[in-house]
Nucleic acid binder design. Structure first.
Length: 949
RNA sequence: GGGCGCUUAGCUCAGUUGGGAGAGCAUCGCCCUUACAAGGCGAGGGUCAGUGGUUCGAGCCCACUAGCGCCCA
């Protein structure tokens, strides 16, 4: 074995073998255990959030697989409509072409080509992370069978009227020229203006204060071309006389009514609001209440039309409405039109004033373009009937959120859920299975032939398929059952629906989680998963969100392989939206990573993610932790070298029954470490079942490093090296060394798969196992009988003596090489027994020249003192150290004890405490006080003793 | 405006039913002790954001305040 651990030599080797051997497949036996991957975008690459969640999913998957469950990690990717179409369009643009140079089919073919050539990035990165999904079942939302499921769901929902088509106001993205759903709109606080316009009153009407106009305030002056009313608060006394009267709308010369509606806040501005039902969601509702005309003034690219399109609510066109728009605005972009209109109001002396104003601006989450509410025909899912059962299954506990209080977020959204706009004006995606005849009648079925057959339509009737595709999340919502073969009846649908746990971030609870619950309940009658583990969000070390534009992104692969400074700088500064940020990012990067990033290996990265997975909703990624866990892996590596060095070619009692073999004589340390292993195993399982990977990691780390490496390996040395140990004793210790290490590797494997496999393979010949790979070996089984309190007490005694001596050495700067003599004062019978039994351990670990029990009648020479319970540990200091140093050291101890003493006596002197607290607590405090007083007395004596010399 | 969360050691974070403030990293000291210097051993370091309340007893429960963050409108 190499003298140090190097992940690069072991990781890929084992992954290839596991995959080639088919180790990632469900076994078919045991209880079904299934995790569905949140399908990443096929365009994407693996970021820290993925790496984090994948580590959790893989740890759970490996754990359950080793426990013998029929374990499936279902993987796959999402076609990501807009994102993917953008990528391919950008590539065409780079070649001087554009999407519309091609037919729809040609373009889609190009997307498929791109997907084949570069869509596999994530799956390769997942392999680097050690992920163990069943690759043979890898699914893609545009695959034939998933597309079939999408079609089937659409048709069924249409038939029961849960899917409908309607002309409504939608969030329109002028860049993509597509509708998007509410969820895809981000609201940003931005600076803008509030323009106050004078709207002349018609028919010579006047306000109470004698003006011939009303003042309306708006942040979007250009929409005035589509105003259909001015509204006031019905209670507003200022305008009572004008309700039902009219405005002469400037520029377009249209009469529009003055209406009263509760929507208006009379405190805000002038209390008069312009109502533009076709370009504002609130105004839409007002318009609906008052049956105002919907006046659309924008084209799909958000430029002003020559003639407005006017409709009634319900979608019927109004032909006789004055729809002519001023010629000077025709074809102008909405923001150019804004400027021109403000200027025109100003020149007409109708601009009252302009104020700075902060407002919420809706932007598309992908395009970052300002969203325009636009009146269009779209397909919707009516969510009301789906939402109710989806709320119920969380309420009744069929689905459980972890941490629990995410259910509040879920309920809040579900209780206020809006109908879901599912049509998108894109080419890449699942095309809507609807056909129209020339009269505009709509027919829904799987294909044109079926449409004709089902509706008795002759071949002469021309049918045209809907051009739109479905929202990407529509297919994602079917993931839990579509990946299992639905609508076919498959064994997987039986076994793996519901899946066991969904591991995901809170950012997609609405986008994905809620919709999966609704759809899976609707189409399978079952919940999609029993638990939802909501992970925190990975942030940088300062708590900032990792983003390309901030230049603080870490690539998980770079942490695994390492990266030099220069390529890292290039990576972080290239392709920025705002190139000006490059200098700043470069500077920060050079400062933080002056040496680049070291290679830490996958296992260290995975262990870090697990250790950071607490209940916190933000996780600040700490690079120091990764380094620490790499060192930890090196520790395991070297512990293995030690074990092999002492057991290779020697009799380790392979195949003997540890509970019934005379040939194995276990030391106190052997017995202790076996018990400790089982305690750690139990802790790991408890915490893992509660998704507290941080606590699980801590339990493993403490056991393997502190107990096994720091204590047990040291305690094994005196047994192995002493001439006094017999062969059965040595065999017992060798057996324990090897078997606990081997079990420990199985315990650690789910979290750190690579280094454990490498080590396990080397230990395999020495233990009884029939597995080829650690990942198929059984997970250790908890054995409560291995934990013996008497054994633990003895080890505690040994440890406190050794620690006592080390403490004296450390404090007084006595070199660890220098053997010291040890005197034990006030030794009880138990102490004497222990000393007799365990002297070898003490001498070896505390590096003792000699150890003696001081007879009660004898006075001790000047010594440095530590206490182990009532036992006094004395290290004679003659010639070793300065007496004053020890006097000072004792004083510090005495001060500490005095404080403790004061606290305890105060508490016990308080009658209310003694009377009210539970007896056990009072008893405990009393005992503590006695101990403290005894210890204090001893130290004070000892200090006096020293001073007298 | 509504909802949720956070504030504990220099840093990143644990702290289970209220009963002796913890870990990792960083710092300091001693040591290249035959598994490991990517290491060992030891040490120092906290007014648990603030105020008030409940309680014999509060990091934990309650109220308020301050600061930070997220989601929704």
């Amino acid at each position: 074995m190499d003298t140090s651990y190097s992940p690069e030599n072991i990781e890929q080797k084992w992954y290839k073998k596991w995959e080639a051997d088919g180790n990632f497949k469900a076994s078919g036996d045991g209880n079904p255990y299934c995790i569905l991957i949140p399908p990443p975008n096929v365009t994407g690459s693996l970021h820290m959030g993925h790496a984090f969640q994948h580590t959790i999913m893989d740890t759970l998957t490996r754990y359950h697989r080793m426990k013998g469950d029929n374990t499936l990690w279902q993987c796959g990717s999402d076609h990501a409509g807009i994102a993917t179409q953008m990528v391919v369009e950008r590539q065409l643009n780079a070649l001087g072409q554009k999407r519309t140079d091609f037919t729809r089919d040609e373009f889609i073919e190009k997307v498929w080509q791109w997907k084949e050539s570069s869509g596999g990035t994530i799956s390769q990165q997942m392999r680097r992370l050690g992920d163990s999904p069943d690759w043979d079942r890898e699914a893609f939302t545009m695959d034939e069978n998933l597309s079939k499921a999408v079609q089937e769901v659409f048709i069924q929902l249409y038939k029961d009227k849960t899917i409908y088509r309607g002309k409504r106001l939608v969030n329109w993205d002028p860049k993509f020229q597509s509708a998007i759903s509410d969820l895809e709109v981000e609201n940003h606080d931005e600076k803008g203006f509030m323009w106050h316009f004078r709207y002349p009153l018609a028919d010579g009407e006047k306000t109470l204060d004698g003006k011939n106009y009303l003042v309306v305030a708006t942040t979007r002056p250009e929409t005035m071309l589509g105003d259909s009313a001015v509204a006031v608060d019905p209670k507003d006394e200022r305008y009572q006389n004008l309700i039902g009267k009219f405005i002469d709308l400037p520029l377009v010369n249209r009469r529009i009514p003055i209406i009263a509606d509760d929507y208006v806040d009379m405190e805000f501005g002038t209390g008069c609001v312009k109502i533009t039902p076709a370009h504002d969601f609130n105004d839409y509702e007002v318009g609906k209440r008052h049956q105002l005309p919907l006046i659309n003034i924008f084209s799909p690219t958000a430029t002003v039309l020559a003639q407005a399109e006017v409709f009634q609510f319900g979608g019927t066109p109004i032909d006789d409405y004055p729809n002519q728009l001023p010629e000077k605005y025709t074809g102008q972009d909405r923001f150019v039109a804004r400027k021109l209109i403000v200027e025109e109001f100003d020149s007409l002396n109708l601009l009252e004033k302009t104020e700075d104003h902060g407002l919420m601006v809706p932007r598309g989450d992908r395009s970052h373009e300002i969203i325009e509410p636009l009146l269009t025909d779209q397909w919707y899912v009516a969510t009301a009937s789906l939402a109710k059962p989806a709320i119920d299954v969380v309420k009744n506990g069929e689905i459980k959120f972890v941490p629990e209080n995410w259910d509040k977020t879920y309920y809040h959204w579900m209780n206020n859920i809006q109908d879901w706009c599912i049509s998108r004006q894109l080419w890449w995606g699942h095309r809507i299975p609807a056909w129209y005849d020339e009269q505009g009648n709509v027919y829904v079925a799987e294909d044109e032939q079926t449409v004709r057959a089902e509706n008795n339509l002759s071949d002469e009737i021309i049918l045209k398929q809907d051009d739109d595709v479905l929202d990407t999340w529509f297919s994602s919502a079917l993931w839990p059952f579509a990946t299992m073969g639905w609508p076919e009846k498959t064994p997987e649908l039986e076994d793996f629906v519901p899946s066991s746990v969904l591991v995901t971030g809170f950012d997609i609870i609405f986008f994905w989680v809620a919709r999966m619950i609704m759809m899976t309940l609707k189409f399978t009658g079952k919940v999609p998963f029993k638990e939802i583990y909501i992970t925190g969000l990975i942030r940088d070390e300062n708590g900032d969100k990792m983003s390309k534009s901030k230049g603080n992104v870490l690539d998980p692969i770079d942490l695994i392989d390492g990266i030099e400074l220069e390529p890292l700088v290039v990576k972080r500064t290239s392709g920025l939206m705002n190139p000006k940020a490059a200098t700043k990012i470069e500077k920060a990067t050079r400062k933080q990573f002056s040496e680049g990033i070291e290679s830490y290996g996958t296992d260290a990265l995975r262990m870090t993610f697990c250790a950071l997975a607490s209940t916190s909703r933000d996780i600040n990624f700490d690079l120091g932790r990764v380094e620490g866990y790499k060192n930890y892996c090196n520790k395991l590596w070297n512990a293995t070298r030690f074990v092999l060095m002492n057991t290779d070619d020697k009799d380790c009692g392979k195949g003997l029954d540890p509970k019934a073999s005379e040939q194995l004589d276990f030391s106190i340390a052997d017995k202790w470490i076996i018990g400790r292993f089982n305690q750690a195993l139990k802790a790991f399982e408890t915490h893992t079942n509660e998704y507290r990977f941080d606590l699980a990691t801590k339990a493993l780390f403490q056991f393997s490093k502190n107990d096994y490496c720091d204590w047990y390996l040291e305690l094994s040395k005196p047994v192995l090296n002493s001439e006094e140990s017999n062969e059965a004793q040595k065999r017992g210790t060798r057996y324990t060394l090897v078997n606990i290490l081997e079990s420990m590797m199985r315990l650690l494997h789910p979290m750190i798969p690579f280094v454990t496999e490498e080590i396990w393979q080397r230990l395999k010949p020495m233990v009884a196992t029939s597995s080829d790979s650690i990942m198929l070996a059984p997970f250790p089984i908890y054995d409560a009988s291995s934990i013996d309190q008497a054994v633990n007490n003895d080890i505690d005694w040994i440890q406190s003596l050794i620690t006592g001596v080390r403490n004296i050495r450390g404090e007084l700067n006595i070199s660890p090489n220098k053997p010291v003599n040890l005197l034990l004062k006030n030794a009880a019978e138990e102490d004497q027994r222990r000393l007799k039994d365990y002297q070898g351990f003490l001498s070896s670990l505390a590096r003792l020249e000699s150890v003696k029990i001081l007879p009660t009648e004898e006075t001790a020479p000047p010594s440095s003192t530590a206490l182990a319970g009532t036992l006094e540990i004395l290290v004679p200091v003659a010639g070793l150290i300065d007496i004053d140093a020890e006097v000072n050291r004792l004083q510090k101890e005495i001060d500490k004890l005095n404080n403790e003493n004061k606290r305890l006596s105060g508490k016990l002197g308080n009658a209310r405490f003694v009377d009210n607290a539970p007896a056990a607590i009072v008893e405990k405090e009393k005992e503590k006080l006695v101990n403290t007083e005894q210890a204090l007395a001893k130290l004070v004596d000892q200090q006096q003793e020293l001073k007298s010399h």
